[in-house]
């Protein structure tokens, strides 16, 4: 389904990691970002260290730390208000923590200015909860905007590429429509198409399945898995759609009371922590157990 035609963007020809190397070699002594000149450990492609963040008196994160391995799908779980969307925004550099460190491919985001963050963001795609499409632009212009801005492609080339990406999310012939002319599910799929059109290295998805019918849930799930397998994308997903999320996740991160519990789906299913068992519920745990059996069966 996903044919990238060999023109995959890697932040202007380099990867996020090589961008880290370049930026730090410019200022070896100047910054402790020189840290990032060493190769980024695979198990800490995205790393949050001792994060603290409060909105007014409400503490969202209180010393939360977690690591995300490169090329895996990470599922953020947690009740409403536990900071799932905020965590995604921090990884995208849209939200700075009060204290602590967010590292993406070796970059310390809190030390970057907006221009430097822009360079890093070229390697990150983000699907916002409400789509965040520009409402004065058509679907073609919305999805093609990053291609136009960063790759300077002609509108003919953009139209071809946009049509291909839209087809991969199950949409055809909607290029000329404005966002207000789309249904909620179509809007989310257009937003998803925009997030992946540049073929980023990291994909942040805030509730990618909400508002979708079962066919399109499966379609988006398959697409996420395919992007992860074929292009090695590191994907971070928040979702309340347990079945799809559990099926594809390599790591689950359960946010709770300012902190988190992270582990493989199997390890969390086996956890006796009352909050984990309560959150997953009996259905989630038995689903994970079945999934584990299926995976071990297919492996053997």
């Amino acid at each position: 389904m996903w044919d990238h035609g060999g023109d995959r963007l890697r932040v202007g020809g380099s990867t996020l990691e090589s961008l880290a190397e370049a930026s730090s070699s410019d200022a070896v002594a100047r910054s402790s970002d020189a840290h990032s000149s060493s190769s980024v450990p695979a198990d800490a492609f995205i790393e949050l260290r001792d994060i603290r963040l409060a909105f007014g008196k409400r503490k969202v994160f209180d010393g939360m730390s977690c690591r995300m391995r490169k090329g895996e799908i990470h599922l953020l779980l947690g009740g409403s208000g536990t900071g799932k969307s905020t965590l995604l925004r921090m990884i995208g550099g849209l939200q700075r923590p009060d204290s602590g460190e967010v590292r993406v491919a070796g970059h310390r985001l809190s030390r970057k200015n907006e221009r430097e963050l822009g360079e890093i963001r070229k390697g990150i795609g983000m699907l916002f909860q409400n789509g965040a499409l520009l409402d004065s632009m058509t679907v073609l212009e919305n999805v093609g905007l990053p291609l136009r801005e960063h790759l300077r492609k002609s509108w003919t080339e953009i139209a071809t590429q946009v049509a291909r990406v839209l087809k991969s999310v199950g949409l055809e012939g909607v290029e000329g429509l404005l966002p207000r002319e789309l249904s909620g599910g179509m809007l989310r799929r257009v937003a998803f198409a925009r997030a992946i059109v540049m073929e980023p290295e990291i994909l942040l998805c805030d509730e990618p399945f909400s508002g979708l019918d079962p066919i399109n849930v499966t379609r988006i799930e398959d697409l996420l898995v395919e992007l992860n397998k074929k292009l090695g994308l590191t994907i971070v997903v928040t979702s309340h759609h347990m079945a799809s999320s559990l099926r594809m996740a390599n790591q689950m991160i359960l946010l709770r009371r300012g902190d988190c519990i992270a582990g493989s789906p199997e390890s969390l299913a086996a956890s006796v922590d009352p909050e984990v068992t309560e959150f997953l519920g009996e259905d989630g745990r038995s689903y994970l157990a079945r999934l584990h059996e299926l995976r071990s069966g297919s492996a053997s």
């Binding site: 925004r89 907006e114 822009g118 963001r121 916002f128 520009l134 409402d135 905007l145 990053p146 960063h150």
Partner: peptide, 14 residues
């Protein structure tokens, strides 16, 4: 308020 400006930032557009 509809995160369109954040959407632009995430596309590395000022």
């Amino acid at each position: 308020s509809t995160e369109q400006l954040d959407g632009l930032r995430m596309m590395a557009i000022d």
